[in-house]
Design a protein around this nucleic acid. Sequence first.
DNA 1: TGCATTTTGGCACCCGATGCCATAATTGAG
DNA 2: CTCAATTATGGCATCGGGTGCCAAAATGCA
Lengths: 195, 195
Amino acid sequence: MQPATKRGRPQEADPRQIARVALGLFERHGFDRVTMGEIAEAASVSRRTLFRLFPSKSDLVWDGLDEVRDLVRQRAATLARADLRVAGVLREFAEPFLRRLDDPEAAELARKRLRLLAAAPALLDHPPLREIEALIATTMAGRTPSGDTPPTLVARTLVAATFAALMWWAEHGEGMSALAATRAALGALAPTDET
Amino acid sequence: MQPATKRGRPQEADPRQIARVALGLFERHGFDRVTMGEIAEAASVSRRTLFRLFPSKSDLVWDGLDEVRDLVRQRAATLARADLRVAGVLREFAEPFLRRLDDPEAAELARKRLRLLAAAPALLDHPPLREIEALIATTMAGRTPSGDTPPTLVARTLVAATFAALMWWAEHGEGMSALAATRAALGALAPTDET
DNA sequence: TGCATTTTGGCACCCGATGCCATAATTGAG
DNA sequence: CTCAATTATGGCATCGGGTGCCAAAATGCA
């Protein structure tokens, strides 16, 4: 996969720097009011290499998500527990990442990104994100006792609901932790009979 | 809003016919492998008027959603009940529409559209759809007793979860009704404590 | 010095989408 | 009947995201 050899022309462009520049522009002017040409100019690279480093505009926002996806992959493969229900999925997948957001600085960065999402929903259509969803769903589906509600149904609904809760938290959840918001939302969804 | 008068050049293009043609092409070749130019040619209109009738490619898939949105608007304005919780939202908003899917023919059309969604998630980024979500969310937020979990949080999570359940139903829910799948999924989401 | 290797960036092009404008087809008023 | 107002159509140019192709630069290695 990686060349590892140091032959060839060395890479001049710094992807993380470029992503930082882009994120700054997005926050200031809005995601879709910033053109790839402007980002390229602001980062002092050509439009062409910008597209080579970040094949889509969304990749600039989701920079770093690949590593999260790898962690989720690893966690999914490692998990040997049989009975993995909703509470288990939250404990094993959501909590380890959400706890990072206890750090106010990390929380603020996460909020910035999530607010970008709310303003430009096209960002949700992102392959690594879809793969994380699918990983959680299939892992859960394989480890849930059958007989009750179809596991794939629960899994996909759970992931969607969790993301929605996170988006809400980014905008209105100032007082509470991301994890608390997620738990509260999931708990409130059961359609208890009323008059 | 509407001209109502019959002056001016009569409309030659038939939007519903065009949408049908487009839907057929999408099913056969996949949403993003069909170009607007091809649709225009297949429907015997110019690319320009195609874009005037359907400002975005997604509008071809979501043709007719505006009327659904109007119904939801009306329903939201009419609803006078105070305490409108999760079960109430399902009863007042989801059920009236999901019941239409008891008709096998309507169910098959809905499945076609939802399967298109699963294959091209960009279709989910559609203004009328967002407005329906927002309508339900704000209606619910205004009628839920405060004190417990923030209503806007519950509302947005509920809508996201319901859509996810519908998408699952379109692909794997052959045996069951759309409403049953939704209910089952929501009920299973509460994180009951386990070991 | 040359050669393989890798990055860079320029160019042309595709596709979705938008603005502008000339033109066609109709109704209604004189 | 004639003409103006009105509405739909479609051609043209342009923009922005995205891709393929290819030549030029910059390095390690023989």
